[in-house]
């Protein structure tokens, strides 16, 4: 077990930039699940950030923003692209730590998820982007579900954190990919939200899956009568476990 001073020096060197790639990656992953480490890193960022004033502004090529915009449009699906009732999932890191802190009441679930995240992270070399986690928030605050996506087995696992199903209602999982077009496609119901639900996504192209948008909506029992989400959606956010 790392003592406080060791952890502080790890945070300091992470911010300073002197760790090797494997250590950097490990710290970047650990901070997601270790609020203490994350806070130490934030403290060091604050301490050393005055040095940023020594960086001289240098204008990049004038056309660079057009490339950035194209990249975002290719990879990022975000608010405003016309999918009602499904809130976009966005790449996100720091919130996992916050989520974990918020989910202390669901301690066992939180702990097992975090372990899963680490176990899977350590197996893969950097920049593989094979593991994703999405946190679905209700009202943008309370985490309701956590979903992990494993690109190798093409499986999603949805774990309830703080979700209850109103009488006569059921949760339904949706996906939007380039492969399936602009309309959300149902991945089925989350019938027993007391335990994790696993869904197979074998029919999707992995490359498409990587950029997919997921959503969870509250529907009448038996699922959406229209084949499209009709009820209020739960806010979801995707975290790449790459780093």
């Amino acid at each position: 077990m790392m003592d406080r001073d060791e952890m502080d020096m790890l945070a300091a060197e992470y911010v300073l930039g002197t760790l090797d790639p494997a250590q950097r990656q490990s710290v970047a992953a650990r901070r997601l699940a270790e609020p203490d480490l994350d806070a130490l890193i934030a403290d060091w960022e604050k301490r050393l950030s005055p040095l940023n004033s020594e960086y001289v502004a240098v204008p990049p090529s004038p056309n660079l923003f057009a490339h950035i915009r194209r990249k975002i449009e290719e990879t990022g699906k975000r608010a405003g692209d016309g999918i009602d009732n499904i809130v976009q999932i966005t790449m996100l890191k720091r919130k996992l730590a916050m989520w974990r802190a918020a989910a202390i009441g669901a301690g066992a679930i939180a702990a097992s998820l975090v372990i899963t995240v680490f176990a899977s992270n350590s197996v893969y070399p950097p920049q593989q982007d094979r593991q994703f986690v999405a946190v679905f928030h209700r009202d943008d605050t309370q985490p309701a579900f956590v979903m992990s996506v494993d690109m190798d087995s093409q499986e999603v696992t949805i774990r309830p954190i703080d979700a209850s199903t109103p009488v006569g209602k059921t949760y339904q999982l949706w996906i939007v990919t380039d492969q399936t077009g602009p309309q959300p496609k149902s991945l089925g119901l989350l019938e027993n939200i007391a335990s994790p639900t696993v869904k197979q996504l074998g029919q999707f192209d992995p490359a498409m899956l990587r950029n997919a948008t997921f959503g969870i909506s509250l529907e009448p029992e038996g699922g959406s009568p229209t084949g499209l989400p009709t009820g209020p959606a739960i806010h979801g956010r995707l975290i790449s476990i790459e780093h």
Partner: peptide, 30 residues
């Protein structure tokens, strides 16, 4: 310039995570 493109894609994707109380926006982006 390649790196800068990645960085701004990240800024876009993570824009909702910025917490004003935690750091200045320039420090966050830097």
């Amino acid at each position: 310039e390649d790196a800068l493109q990645d960085i701004y894609v990240r800024v876009w994707q993570n824009a909702g995570d910025f917490e004003p109380g935690r750091s200045s926006i320039i420090t966050w982006m830097a």
